[in-house]
């Protein structure tokens, strides 16, 4: 049992606890903060899986922007009185989730992982170690390549160039879309409860 595995299990447990907190706690702000914790811990998990660039992206994007965005949204939509956080039907949801979890775990455990072999990808031939893989496949540091910024960058701009461009277009669309949707108009200023609309004034 090496340090990496131990670290993984510890961090994984922490992430699970944090996530449980996100969905179970009664305070919205606590939810948001626990979400930040969960996402950050996941970033650490990425680090343990030797993709440091991905961990960086995770922290930057999720913790840095998504969480802040969520907190802003929470603040902008303050309830006037204390609201109950969960539905009436939450036992059903819990049951369903447990069932789904059981199904997923069962499928995972029941799979023959030994028969799964690495394949050749577009970035280059991989080391075929199918014969030397033991019964439960392990990923060893010397087998998995480290994916730092250079490797990611190369891949993004050569093999995955088209999805990259499409993703940038999607981001543009999302930007414009959210601008349009969230824009203030005269009608809503009347209906808004105590919220001052943006300084833009009426619709153009």
């Amino acid at each position: 049992m090496d340090l990496g595995a131990v670290a993984f299990y510890v961090v994984a447990t922490a992430t699970v606890v944090a996530s449980l907190g996100v969905v179970l706690t009664r305070s919205a702000v606590y939810s948001a903060l626990l979400l930040i914790a969960s996402l950050a811990l996941t970033g650490f998990v990425y680090l343990l899986m030797l993709s440091d660039f991905l961990a960086l992206v995770q922290i930057l994007v999720y913790v840095g922007t998504v969480s802040i965005l969520l907190l802003f949204a929470l603040m902008l939509t303050r309830p006037r009185e204390l609201q109950v956080m969960n539905h009436r039907g939450w036992p059903l949801a819990a049951g369903g989730s447990v069932v789904a979890l059981v199904a997923l775990v069962w499928t995972t455990v029941g799979t023959n992982w030994a028969a799964l072999t690495p394949r050749v990808t577009a970035t280059g031939p991989t080391v075929s170690t199918s014969s030397s893989v033991s019964s439960s496949a392990r990923f060893a540091a010397e087998e998995v390549r480290r994916f730092g910024p250079e490797e990611i960058g190369t891949a993004l701009f050569t093999v995955w160039a088209v999805p990259f461009e499409i993703a940038s277009v999607v981001l543009l669309i999302a930007l414009i879309g959210s601008l349009l949707i969230a824009r203030a108009t005269d009608l809503e200023d009347e209906a808004a409860t105590g919220t001052v609309a943006g300084a833009e004034g009426g619709s153009a």
Binding site: G89, A93, A100
Partner: peptide
């Protein structure tokens, strides 16, 4: 919406069951 989400998830579950 959550009813719809529930139905959505149930549907996916059923697909999974069928595939298994």
């Amino acid at each position: 919406v959550y009813h719809y989400a529930f139905a959505f998830i149930v549907g996916i579950g059923m697909i999974g069951v069928v595939m298994a």
